[in-house]
Simulated assay, not measured.
Amino acid sequence: MRATVYHNKFDVRIDQVPDPQIKEPTDAIIRVTHACICGSDLWPYRGLDQYQEGWRLGHEFMGIVEEVGKEVKTVKKGDRVISPFTFSDGSCEFCHKGLYTSCIHGGFWGGANNDGGQAEAMRVPLADGTLVVVPPETSNDEKLLKSILPLTDVMGTGHHAAVAAGVRQGSTAAIVGDGAVGLCGVLAAKRLGASRIIMLGHQPERLKIAKEFGATDIVEARGDDAVKQVQEMTKGGADATLECVGTKAAMDMAIDITRPGGGVGYVGAPHGSEQLNFSRLFLHNISMRGGIAPVRAYLPVLLKDVLAGKLDPAPVLNMTVDLEGYLLAMLLWISARPSR
């Protein structure tokens, strides 16, 4: 079968790889029907993550179950399923707390040892604790499936940022970063009841989507000018700030625009953001919560809202290609997404 494989910086190929097989009785084999390219895939593509030749890519996918191990009970052959970007057993201490990304038996898609979602098929370990069955009536509804696909990562991650930041009914939320996660953070903030939603970004097409998703204010300034603008328009800062980039500049900005006593929900994968302004956090009792999103915990409720027509993150997906078009999509994306 075909799959995306990392070879070197700026060298990702569609290679022939062995077909996946059941290795453990808790495995399932999935025929992948839909997958995404994540912003975090750009880090190894640019050579900024320590990927090695032969490692697989892709962690946002859904598909049809082709085969299950003898101990799998919650999914069966023919089911359409959606997966979070990590796998988990659903039964350990941390899974019971909703922290599926810390599952003691779990792991991440792709890399050296696991199949990646940007492929024709893949082996899913711990299928019962990982996969969520999508109602069969959605199987031929491409519009609805496009709305469901972002739940694999970016919608759940944006939601995690909003929850961690403490977005509440009537609060003011600010979102740092206009990528897919930031845009989904706008949806999440609106869903949780924020009355004012400030998007900080620079890409006109994305800012247009942010407004459609519910952003009430747009800040296109950068650096200190952006901080000053948010501080002035909110008379002291946002109640809740969603940091959706991961760089030091983005993290500093998130801290600087948060109101005393407010919170920062950080979900951007850290790249150079290890040194933070702890003085401001300390002096103004600003809390920081977040980290890698336990998307599996959020999948059922977010899926319910999508199926009910209450939530639609589909506009964050603006290009559709097959596997052969993958490299073109990567090149177009990286040209439109300059390094911060």
Rank of each mutant, 00 (worst) to 15 (best):
M1R: 12
V5M: 07
Y6P: 05
H7W: 10
H7M: 04
D11K: 14
Q21C: 06
I22F: 06
K23S: 00
I30H: 06
C36L: 12
S40A: 09
D41V: 12
R46A: 09
M62V: 02
E67Y: 05
K70P: 02
G78S: 07
F85Y: 12
T86I: 08
C95E: 04
C95Q: 03
G98W: 09
Y100H: 08
C103I: 03
F108K: 09
G110V: 14
N113W: 13
G117A: 10
L126W: 13
V134Y: 04
P135C: 08
D141G: 06
D141I: 05
L145T: 11
S147F: 04
S147E: 10
T152S: 08
D153W: 02
A162K: 14
A173W: 15
A173N: 10
I175K: 14
A189P: 11
R191K: 14
R191M: 15
L192D: 03
A194K: 12
G201A: 01
P204Y: 03
F213M: 11
D225P: 13
C244N: 03
A250T: 12
T258C: 06
P260I: 02
G261F: 07
G268V: 07
G268T: 01
P270W: 10
P294H: 12
R296V: 04
P300N: 07
L303P: 07
A308L: 13
L317P: 12
M319S: 04
T320W: 12
A329R: 05
S335C: 07
R337P: 02
